[in-house]
Design a protein around this nucleic acid. Sequence first.
DNA 1: AAATATGGCAACCGCCCGTTT
DNA 2: AAAACGGGCGGTTGCCATATT
Length: 267
Amino acid sequence: MVKTSSSTEKTPLKKGAWSPEEDRKLTAYIKRYKIWNWTEMSKAAGLARTGKSCRLRWVNYLRPDIKRGNFSKEEEDTIITLHETLGNRWSAIAAKLPSGRTDNEVKNYWHTHLKKRLKADSTSSTSVIPELQEAGDEASWKNLSESDVLASPEPAKSISKIDDSKNTVVSPQQPITSSTGPANFEIGKDQKIVNEGINIDKTSSHETFIEELQSLWSQQGDFFYPPPDDQLIGPSTNSPIWQYDFYKEFDDCYDWVHYMDKTFGNS
DNA sequence: AAATATGGCAACCGCCCGTTT
DNA sequence: AAAACGGGCGGTTGCCATATT
């Protein structure tokens, strides 16, 4: 059972089936800190897994918005139709399904059911009775106790800092740079966060800082909040900037506030 | 009842691509 | 410019449950 000892020497990375404890750790970590870097998250959450393994587990199984249960006749037909035009592009097919299936599930379902159905197409007029479709792990996401979430370890200090040399804030949740943050967001050498002519003094009081930051990040002109997927969309790129639900209520952002407290010395 | 075959699916692997250093 | 890195994708494997012999 010797594994590669190429670069890192620490605990050997685990493979294979996920234990309930690992699931709980990953879910709790993501619930508290969101997704920012799979490799670092894995370490920070205390998981002896590769980032890829964590991502796979989350995307295909733990995510609260995935759907499980039997495929409906409509879903089957849609998959077959899409497969005619898209081929084995399972992620593209899954994305076009309204039901929230993962590409892995679509792929598995194709190989185990639909290939056969296509073969026996002429004779088969059997319809699959749609079962009640339940969200994948939504229950365990919602029911995760506060203590479980809070038990998720604190982020490493090394990733909770301002990197002045690179002009970025590196938060426990997600690196924020001039490209990922609001337009023209940057940390100036003059100890200010600058955005569209609005300066926030890093040395201002805690309350003032938070208020200004909140005001800055809620400007409708800079970006907006589309309801569908809880993501903050930039006006120019039309691509997600960061997850909206982390910022929509500062009550939820005690980690961020705590980080700001430590960073700016307002406690 | 035990042994073997088959099916279903979670998870891994290799490759690729875009971004960063 | 190129190496390194992170993440996404599709093919495939391997484990476990069920069916069949």
